[in-house]
Structures are given as C-alpha cells and as structure tokens.
C-alpha cells in the first residue's frame, strides 16, 4: 500500500491524468453551458479553460506536464479542419451562389481584423513582439502560432490571444450582428468564422447548419489571407 502523496506524484506526471482531466473539465463546462440555455456568457471553452487553469495552479502543475497529456486533444484540431470539407461539400450549391459576397467579405474582414488589433495595441504602447502576437488573433490557433512565430511573436502568447478572441467573438456575435441588422445565416456564419475561427464556427453550427458551413469556409480562407497581410500591416506600423 502506497501513500496518497506517492500516488499523486506518479499520476501528476502521467499523460493519462491530464488527458482525462481535460475531457472531464470540458464535459462539465458543456453541461453548465447547456443548463444555462447556451447563454453566450456561459461559453464552454471559457469555463473549461478557467477550470483547468485553476486546477493547474492549485496543484502547482507545470503547463508542459499538462500539455503532454492534453496534446492528444490539441492534435485533433488538424483533422477537424480537414473535416470541414464535408459540410462544405454538402452545402456546395449555396456556397457557389455566394462566391462574390464571400470574396468581398473575406478581404474586408481580414484587413479589419489585423489593422484594428495591431492599431489599438500599438496605441496602448504594446512592444513589437506583442504586436506580432496579436496580429493574427482571428485565425485558428495552429495557423496563427505559425504566422506570429515567423514575425518574432511568442507562439504561446498568440495561442492565448487567439482563444480569447474566439471566446469573445462567440459571446458578442449575436448582439453585434443584431446591431448591424444582418439576419442572413450565411453572412452571420461567415462573420463568426472569420472573426472568431473555430470557436466562432462551433457557435455558428449551434445556431444553424448553413451558418456553420459558411463559418468553416471563412475560418479556412482567413487563415490564407491573414498569413499574406500580417507582414504588410506590421511594416506599416514600422516593425
């Protein structure tokens, strides 16, 4: 029979514990979100991240140790991005009819996202590496981290800013879109996926499958466009 402290030392270092904890934290967060009637403020990612962070800090666990277990969940972001081809294919006719508005909104939205984020952070006196980290904030995590890294930003800070953007976008979407008077599910979904990547896409799928499909397209295309415009915008700010 071993002591509880010895058992904890063994478990705390094993990937199994932190993988299980991540899934359990999300399951709980999703239940709470459902119990709150999917209220935007009860965002499941926000709740799960807050819970996991509290557990890591309370137990003094290093993020690297945690991530050794959680990486198996993180890895699935790649296949999930590929999987967006299936709803895209299912709604190919709607998408084909909307090519022109889609291209215009993509360009306008991508430029707005990068210029406004860098401009505001710059006005608050953020240093160059932080500006490089916030520039790709609307793009899905894996892509944004790659963009920031190439321009001297810290990928870990970028991940935090990207996830925060996704949560904020999912929370603000319906009030903001209501305020500008846009009702079309394609336009709403496209805006959510462009501004708030996968977390926005998940929110859009909750509302309507057409909105979800356009969100997925926006998320994929914005990854491409943002990679091209971030270096240009940073140069405009003298970086």
């Amino acid at each position: 029979m071993i002591g509880l402290d010895v058992l904890w030392v063994y478990l705390a270092a094993s990937p199994l514990l932190w993988l299980t904890a991540t899934l359990a934290a999300y399951l709980l967060a999703d239940r709470v979100s459902a119990a709150c009637g999917r209220h935007p403020l009860a965002n499941p990612v926000l709740l799960a991240v807050a819970l996991m962070s509290a557990v890591l800090m309370a137990t003094g666990t290093k993020f690297q140790t945690y991530f050794e277990g959680a990486q198996f969940v993180h890895f699935l972001l790649g296949p999930a991005t590929v999987a967006l081809a299936v709803p895209l294919w299912r709604n190919r006719r709607e998408v084909g009819r909307a090519l022109l508005p889609l291209a215009a909104a993509l360009l306008a939205g991508a430029v707005t996202a990068v210029v406004s984020a860098v401009g505001i952070a710059w006005a608050f006196g953020a240093p160059a590496p932080v500006l490089a980290a916030i520039a790709p904030k609307s793009v899905t995590a894996a892509i944004a981290m790659g963009i920031a890294h190439e321009l001297g930003g810290d990928p870990a800070l970028t991940a935090t800013l990207v996830i925060s953007t996704g949560i904020l976008g999912a929370m603000m979407a319906w009030p903001v879109l209501g305020a500008v008077g846009v009702r079309d599910p394609a336009a709403r979904g496209f805006a959510l996926g462009l501004a708030a990547h996968g977390i926005g896409t998940a929110r859009a799928f909750q509302a309507d499958p057409v909105a979800g499909t356009f969100a997925g397209i926006a998320m994929g295309l914005n990854g491409l466009v943002t990679a091209a415009i971030v270096p240009v915008v940073l140069r405009l700010f003298g970086l």
Partner: peptide
Amino acid sequence: LLGNLSLLFVPAGTGV
C-alpha cells in the same frame, strides 16, 4: 469531430 470542436481549443487555451 465538428460536434465537439470547442473541446479541441481547451489545451491551447489553458496556456494562459
């Protein structure tokens, strides 16, 4: 996968 898309952002988010 897409039904649980939100879950996949928890590890990167915990990097906070």
